[in-house]
Design a protein around this nucleic acid. Structure first.
Length: 946
RNA sequence: GCCCGAGUGAUGGAAUGGUAGACAUAGAGGACUUAAAAUCCUCAGACAGUGAUGUCGUGCGGGUUCGAGUCCCGCCUCGGGCACCA
């Protein structure tokens, strides 16, 4: 840009742009009404911005180029909403506040003030009355409200992520805090536990999120990567039962009997599977005594390594007492509806007839595995009791939903699942089932722990599991050599042909995908083949069968499995939307009722991160909770992922001041779904997927009318530095838009960004400091063309109408670059003619207005107009005026261009053929050769084939 | 490895299967100027030729077609996404 100096006298952009920005604001030129008679609404949106501070070229590209389209649509007669706001929660504000002092809130609001002024310098048609700010209580009130609505619809739940848990310290440990599977601080054995975290059930929508993509006018790339991300694979779950048969002892509870539905049903089901089942009648079931019940249970069977004991309710207490007494270890202990203290609301009759101390050491050493399974909606025992027994035995509880509370239904499939051990594999190749030569479990698979007592090479297996745990995710990904260990002594049966196959563990099988277990078919699967060759496992070439048929035949299930995981939204951070949950003294979570929303983010918090949730340090928050809900109530101290805030913001723009609802149905009906959503490609699998899920969830609850919130989506690319690299301070290639705007004007910057290449494709364009000057020159040319206006000229040039036509078509396709070049072609032509008419020039200004709103407005008023050019309509071309009378037709010989002829439009084919052949130059080429064929493509080409 | 997308002058980029390189930048020459900048005019894919003109030319190799930057097959390179996903 070194050679260019602007001519102050000719066109003073600084003055003009400032003047019009102020006037527009005074006039309220861009105020948007919800409906304007005879105008169709058009809602265009660009992803709102994080208030990071200075506006960079990327912001200009993101917001000012779409403004061209918004203005164009407005001139086309649409009532256009093109709003702006701030995605204001998030980590950078916390970090900045730490770095520069102060608190995240005042820092954020200060940044927003700066950015708002910078955004205004673009001359965009934002209606600032529509602004939204995601960190404002009046906004996050609705984020919280939606969360509680989702909670009611079971779209929110807790507890899925596996975390390291120290049962003594009652705390989550980071991987770094676990040494040799022991707590770094207290030395207790660390267990892997499903930590309760707030999760959103996005996987429930996996199918719809994939299937509805087909209805969208979105870039192919987005659809592909969302599909990829969700990762649906359709296949079968197939059960492989163990060769080993057990003797089950089923112990019923207080006032129970083996004849009750679930016991009888379980007995039948287990016997069907070849096991022996003993179901003793425990004496005096209405007034049970420990001594006689335990004695009866002990007499029921000879307890040995093939015995599995299941105790339900009080039966779980009996079971534990049995385990204290037996002399040699059994295979396993399963407890359901279990407790270890008589801490019931009313005194139970067995309170004093049982003893409530347990020899945990003895119990544990007398059994191969312990499983606890509890009903989330249990009404017989309390959460506290569940937590007590978990702590007592130091075994993670599996929470399930029973058919009836406390597993009191006739049939309880979850119980059968817990009792009947088998390996369930997921496969997309059920057709290869006959070729299975072994089965592989993920080392973390729960079954491995359960099988431990019967594994002959226990030490080797444990060592391998420990090794796997030591490896970081990265390590596991990097080393592709297959490793694994056979679980010696453990075999399963292939349900298709009853062949007995060995079971292995290997870290190439992932616990988090499918069922965490695979059937290995080395004949048809590369990884299985690799593994088989490392460990010399057999490879069987068996005929393929029909997937569906075989799945049904072996009692398997056709299922889809997904790569997509549920969305964990809990953040141990300060600057975010507080999760509107409070806990009662029993520790049960309750949503904060609507009347207490917004559930305010406390301000009395030292937000310096130290790994714990900063809100836990807020005195005010805890006092507020007790004051509203009562003594012993505690607030949730986590905040939400900021992607939650941005999952619904497009609904708020249409009704941003509503205190009664997140948006009124009328306003949503007026504007939603978005007609056009533009944004960065980086949001493809996060924001775009989350917000789609959010919309569908709102739709299912009946809060919105759309299953998809945006009709058309376009991604844009990046603006690179002049050297073709991503702009970064360290590379010294950062273009500061403020400087260029000062030097060349906002109009020039907007238009240059639009001129670089087509918008809406994810191509990255380097900023050319010289290129931007070309656009400035063009604007000056337009300015100077005023001098050529003459009242005596009334004819309109053909080129003008061609320009209108081409620009209209190009803008519709976001090809602003060719639209601009067409304007340049027009002005280049005008440069070479003497005079132009007033109306022609006015039309040019109208065409220019969306691109360069300030200069167009200035010139418009200079022509004597008294109302804004931005209230004008987009020009229409006259089709009769673009018809040429003659045209140049290329003549090819054998497809090679050899000359051109001028012909009148509408000349008959025969005549064109004749003219072509008569052409002097063409004659030279033909010179005596035989013309085989002449192809005349109307107003395109003539091809002579020799 | 798998799945997308893209390869056109010195550069950004134009081209419903029909005159490849519009428009713009950079470049060369000229006009204006004491001079420079700005502005205006002209040239400009490569090679050969004084020239008219010819040959070649859209990542590479094939193919379809009267005709291919564009469609098909096989590669190469770059960019993006996913990745031991069963």
């Amino acid at each position: 840009m070194k050679k260019w100096v602007y001519m102050k006298n000719l066109y003073n952009h600084v003055e003009i742009e400032k003047k019009w920005q102020e006037k527009w604001q005074e006039q309220g030129l861009y105020k948007v009404q919800d409906s304007v008679s005879e105008k169709e609404n058009f809602y265009q949106l660009v992803e709102f911005s994080y208030p990071s501070g200075n506006l960079h070229v990327g912001h200009w590209y993101a917001f000012s180029v779409p403004d061209i389209f918004a203005r164009y649509k407005r001139m086309q007669g649409f009532n256009v909403l093109y709003p702006m706001g701030f995605d204001a929660f998030g980590l950078p504000a916390e970090n900045a506040a730490i770095k520069f002092g102060g608190d995240p809130m005042s820092w954020t609001y200060k940044q927003m003030d700066v950015m708002r002024e910078q955004l205004k310098s673009m001359g965009a048609m934002f209606d600032w009355d529509k602004e939204i700010v995601s960190c404002a209580p009046e906004y996050y009130k609705w984020t919280q409200w939606m969360f509680t609505q989702f909670l009611k619809k079971d779209l929110v739940y807790r507890a899925v992520t596996k975390v390291n848990w120290c049962p003594k310290d009652q705390t989550i440990l980071a991987n770094e805090q676990v040494v040799d599977n022991k707590c770094e601080r207290c030395g207790s054995e660390v267990i892997q536990r499903d930590q309760e975290q707030w999760m959103l059930r996005i996987t429930k929508y996996a199918d719809r999120l994939i299937d509805d993509l087909d209805t969208r006018d979105w870039p192919h790339a987005i659809k592909e990567s969302q599909k990829n991300w969700i990762g649906r694979s359709e296949g079968s779950e197939i059960d492989f039962s163990f060769t080993k048969k057990y003797t089950y002892v089923l112990l019923h509870g207080f006032q129970g009997s083996p004849n009750e539905g679930k016991y009888a049903w379980l007995k039948e089901e287990l016997e069907k599977r070849g096991h022996t089942v003993v179901c003793p009648v425990l004496p005096n079931t209405n007034s049970p005594k420990e001594i006689e019940q335990v004695a009866t249970a002990l007499d029921a069977v000879a307890y040995d390594e093939n015995t599995i004991v299941w105790g339900h309710s009080l039966g779980s207490v009996v079971a534990m007492k049995v385990l204290e007494k037996i002399t040699k270890p059994i295979a396993g202990l399963i407890l359901s509806g279990a407790f270890c203290s008589p801490d019931f609301e009313e005194d139970k009759i067995f309170k004093d007839t049982f003893t409530w101390d347990f020899d945990v050491k003895k119990i544990k050493s007398n059994t191969g595995f312990i499983k606890i399974i509890q009903d989330t909606a249990d009404d017989a025992i309390t959460k506290k009791q569940m937590s007590e027994i978990e702590t007592l035995l130091n075994v993670p509880t599996r929470f399930v939903k029973a058919e009836l509370p406390h597993f009191d239904a006739e049939k309880e499939p979850e119980l059968l699942k817990a009792l009947d051990t088998k390996i369930t594999v997921f496969t997309t190749r059920a057709d290869t089932l006959f070729g299975v030569t072994y089965v592989v479990l993920a080392p973390e698979h729960a079954l491995v722990q359960q099988l431990l007592s019967q594994i002959e090479n226990k030490d080797e297996v444990l060592a391998y599991i420990a090794d796997t745990k030591k490896k970081s995710e990265l390590d596991r990904q990097q080393s592709k050599e297959k490793t694994g260990v056979q679980l010696k002594g453990v075999f399963v049966i292939n349900p298709a042909n009853n062949e007995v196959v060995p079971v292995w563990i290997a870290d190439y099988v992932l616990a988090g995908y499918g069922t965490g277990a695979v059937m290995a078919v080395p004949m048809h699967d590369e990884r299985d083949a690799e593994f088989a060759s490392v460990y010399n496992l057999p490879v069987l070439d068996r005929p393929l069968v029909d997937k569906v048929e075989i799945t049904n035949k072996v009692g398997g299930r056709l299922v889809s499995t997904y790569r997509l995981r549920d969305w964990g939204i809990s953040r141990q951070r300060y600057w975010g939307t507080p999760i509107p949950i409070v806990y009662d003294p029993e520790g049960i979570a309750h949503p904060v009722p609507d009347e207490h929303l917004p559930w305010l983010l406390p301000t009395d918090v030292d937000h310096t991160p130290d790994g714990t949730a900063p809100l836990a340090r807020s005195k005010e928050l805890f006092e507020r909770t007790e004051k509203i809900f009562g003594k012993g109530w505690k607030p949730e101290v986590e905040t939400m992922d900021t992607f939650v805030d941005s999952s619904w913001y497009f609904y708020r723009y249409v009704d941003n001041k509503n205190n009664e609802a997140f948006a009124s149905p009328e306003k949503m009906a007026a504007w939603m779904p978005l007609d056009l959503y533009m944004g960065g490609a980086e949001h493809t699998t996060m924001h775009l997927l989350y917000s789609r899920f959010w919309t569908k969830a709102l739709y299912d609850i009946g809060l919105v009318q759309d299953t998809e919130a945006y009709t058309v989506r376009r991604n844009r690319g990046l603006i690179l530095g002049p050297d073709g690299n991503k702009m970064s301070k360290s590379k010294g290639n950062v273009i500061d838009p403020d400087n260029i705007v000062k030097l060349l004007g906002a109009d020039t910057v907007r238009m240059y960004l639009a001129f670089m290449g087509p918008y809406g494709v994810t191509t990255n364009y380097p900023w050319d400091p010289n290129g931007v000057v070309g656009v400035r020159r063009f604007l000056e040319r337009v300015w100077k063309l005023q001098e050529k206006i003459s009242d005596t000229v009334t004819t309109e040039t053909k080129q003008l109408h061609k320009t209108i036509k081409k620009m209209t078509e190009d803008i519709e396709e976001f090809k602003f670059n060719t639209a601009i070049s067409q304007m340049m072609i027009l002005t280049n032509e005008w440069d070479s003619i003497e005079n132009i008419s007033n109306t022609e020039y006015k039309t040019l200004l109208q065409l220019l207005a969306p691109f360069a709103p300030h200069i167009a407005e200035e010139l418009w008023y200079m022509l004597g107009n008294t109302s804004s050019i931005h209230l004008e309509s987009w020009p229409k071309y006259d089709p009769t005026k673009i018809i040429d009378s003659t045209m140049t037709l290329p003549i090819q010989i054998n497809g090679k261009l050899r000359g051109t002829i001028e012909v009148a439009i509408g000349t008959a084919k025969e005549e064109i053929e004749k003219l072509a052949l008569e052409n002097e130059k063409i004659q030279q080429y033909i010179s005596g050769q035989q013309v085989k064929k002449i192809i005349v493509v109307e107003s395109r080409v003539v091809n002579i084939v020799l």
